[in-house]
Design a protein around this nucleic acid. Structure first.
Lengths: 211, 211
DNA sequence: TGATTTAATAAACACTGTTTAGTATATTTG
DNA sequence: CAAATATACTAAACAGTGTTTATTAAATCA
């Protein structure tokens, strides 16, 4: 039965086409600019057709979130090769913040938006890539603590610390809340200084590690 | 001319009525559940009438944001009386996180949503209450540094540190991202532990202050 | 009382996500 | 090969959204 297989392929092709165009719209116009109807006209199908390939918009945004995690992982490929777990942790933090600031539309889906999480909840599924990222960071922390002989510290709590510090920085910056800094001329400089400073603080505070 | 004054009063009354009902809807159904049309039927006027009192939805959400700041300030009244600036800072942090977790709909408008900031940008206005909050925190940090003789440290950067750590914690928790913690049974306990731990870490890291 | 200003709205515009019923086309079966 | 069935697709509708415009009714002024 080659027909069933060809149909399966064709089905996947259209799914891919939808996600490809969704990606283009997301990059150009953000999550708010990504509507089912715009997506439909873009791929030259009717809006109803999209619902033959995805349950709802949340599922599409869920898939986009997964693409975002792949994108982030790609930007971190060189990290995995680093021997020193402390340098690995620092680089993860630095690249995480970098990614959040420069690829906000992806970051927003991954760590801020409710839609992809709604899909996960509805499907009673797990937040796979998020857990994987967290587990890797926690593993790095454990390795660092082990190497330093700090047996009393919890690597999972340490990972959450690092993560939420970076996340807070990214989200406040992107949603324009750092406008509180009165020195408008040097606002950009303050932000960059804060990025470095946050990482330094965290590294010292968690690992007594001076950069 | 008592008529002009009466009309002014009536105009303000309807504005207040709109904001009062908007507040009720916000609390019950969140920002997503707050629509102009629902608000209109609730106050028994047509949707178009609302546009005679507010430029657009962003302005209403901007006013709600201001109400949120008042609410937060009220929850912090006892802080201002504390003599020790370090205890003041700790309490601000603790109450800030508490507020974010328990009054998320307000917090979201204040520190996460784009709508109120869009209104500010359109009016070329400043983020008044946000700046006030930040300035107060920075002043507390400066007082603490001064008391400790730490003249080399920047209180403004310190305030941003504390703020973004607390903000990261709140937003990751509320948007359900802490589901990464595999220990589902003790997830709540982990979260509470993290809140305490974050504050402790920040206090030590910024002020060498052990709680 | 007549002219004018003000307040309110019905209806429309341009969107949004999603569902349903119906129509061609492709595939399978007799 | 023809009839029956299954598949792919869509037009249209449903129930919303924020916002604008033209019109009407009421209050105020001259």
């Amino acid at each position: 039965m080659g027909i069933a297989e060809r149909k399966e392929r064709e089905k996947q092709d259209i799914k891919d086409l939808i996600l490809l165009k969704a990606k283009e719209i997301l990059i150009k116009e953000g999550q708010d600019g990504l509507s089912i109807r715009k997506l439909a006209t873009e791929i030259e199908y009717s809006p109803a057709t999209i619902y033959l390939y995805f349950q709802d918009k949340d599922e599409i945004l869920y898939q986009m979130m997964n693409m975002g995690f792949e994108k982030m992982a790609q930007s971190m490929t060189h990290v995995y090769a680093l021997e020193d777990p402390l340098k690995r942790i620092y680089e993860i933090g630095r690249l995480y913040i970098e990614f959040g600031l420069h690829e906000w539309e992806w970051y927003h889906l991954m760590f801020n938006s409710a839609s992809p999480m709604n899909h996960i909840e509805r499907c009673k599924a797990e937040w796979g890539p998020g857990i994987a990222m967290y587990d890797y960071l926690a593993a790095c922390c454990q390795e660092a603590f082990l190497q330093q002989g700090k047996t009393d510290r919890d690597p999972k709590i340490a990972a959450l610390h690092l993560w939420s510090a970076a996340h807070g920085l990214v989200t406040l910056a992107v949603t324009n809340r750092f406008c509180v800094v009165e020195d408008h001329a040097h606002q950009e400089a303050v932000r960059n200084h804060l990025i470095e400073d946050t990482l330094k603080h965290i590294m010292i505070s968690l690992f007594d590690y001076k950069i």
